[in-house]
């Protein structure tokens, strides 16, 4: 049977593609084009510019002027490589810490009785109701030398002098773990909540201690939630800019910060674009893995 799709069906199918085209592909092409251009002191600060009014010739000239100079530059100055690697490191460690903190919380919520459960979930989501920026600023107030934590430490006599916490990597980890915790808790909760309690009973019935039962049953069965949560934290954390900028020190190298400096301080849009394109390439691997994982989970349902 030959079925041709109606106009309505086509529109429904086209909407997500149009969305991606307008908000992802076109901006990406612009950024990519910029990364192949050369820096000039002008407005805009790069050349060549394509003037569509001049037609085909303008495009041809532009293509002739494109080169990979900016990428070569990135590989020559180890500032960039260090930024990338440090971002990956900070993102990995933060993801691990978030998992460590998020798992018991998610587990506790999933085990709580149902009336308490929705309240606890609310509390997890509640911070989203205030601006992310304000919440990170609030951490400055907590962590700075004359901040709440240091005041408390001094009062309790734990230290005589304030501990330097703000403008350190420690503060960056605190900021990232705090900000991304809900993204870890929610998928973990979803997979732990599905877990059939009688499985644990069966495991203990067969001689497994409660601790062993956790590692043999609960943990492996919550793997989909762990994987989803880790990706949801890791991917945005790699490109994180606000947190290292506000809480980190000048020596905290993160690629998001480097990109910002390139773009706004140095006004070198072309190198900044190259940095962004490489960052995207870095993230494509985990994003594709994540997609694969989600598809597999979907197929398993």
């Amino acid at each position: 049977m030959q079925s041709s799709k109606s106009l309505k069906e086509w529109i429904v199918i086209a909407i997500p593609y149009l969305w991606l085209l307008a908000l992802f592909l076109i901006p990406f092409i612009i950024v990519f084009k910029m990364s192949l251009s050369d820096y000039v002191v002008a407005r805009p600060p790069y050349t060549p510019t394509i003037n569509l009014a001049e037609g085909w010739q303008s495009i041809k000239d532009a293509f002739a002027a494109f080169d990979f100079e900016n990428y070569v530059f990135l590989s020559e100055d180890d500032l960039y490589i260090k930024s990338y690697l440090n971002s990956l490191k900070i993102a990995s460690i933060s993801t691990f810490l978030t998992l460590l903190i998020g798992y018991p919380i998610a587990y506790g919520i999933a085990r709580a009785n149902s009336s308490l459960r929705s309240l606890l979930l609310m509390l997890v989501i509640l911070p989203f109701w205030t601006s992310f920026l304000i919440r990170v600023y609030a951490w400055i107030g907590i962590l700075k030398n004359e901040g709440l934590l240091n005041l408390l430490f001094l009062k309790l006599g734990i230290t005589d002098a304030p501990i330097q916490m703000i403008n350190t990597d420690f503060a960056v980890y605190v900021g990232i773990v705090y900000s991304y915790l809900p993204f870890m808790i929610l998928p973990l909760y979803a997979s732990l909540e599905k877990l059939d309690g009688s499985l644990i009973e069966a495991a203990t019935d067969l001689g497994s201690t409660p601790t062993k039962a956790f590692w043999q049953i609960t943990f492996p069965l919550s793997m989909p939630g762990i994987v989803a949560g880790c990706f949801l934290v890791f991917i945005p954390a790699v490109g994180e800019f606000v947190i290292p900028d506000l809480l980190g020190s000048n020596s905290t190298l993160m690629i998001g910060k480097t990109l910002w400096t390139e773009f706004f301080s140095n006004r070198d849009w072309t190198v900044a674009s190259a940095v962004a394109v490489i960052l995207l390439l870095f993230l494509i691997v985990p994003i594709v893995l994540f997609q694969k994982h989600q598809e597999r989970e979907g197929a398993n349902l």
């Binding site: 059939d196 499985l199 009973e201």
Partner: peptide
């Protein structure tokens, strides 16, 4: 178990 409780 009545619900079998097999480890999936």
């Amino acid at each position: 178990f009545q619900s079998y409780a097999l480890f999936p």
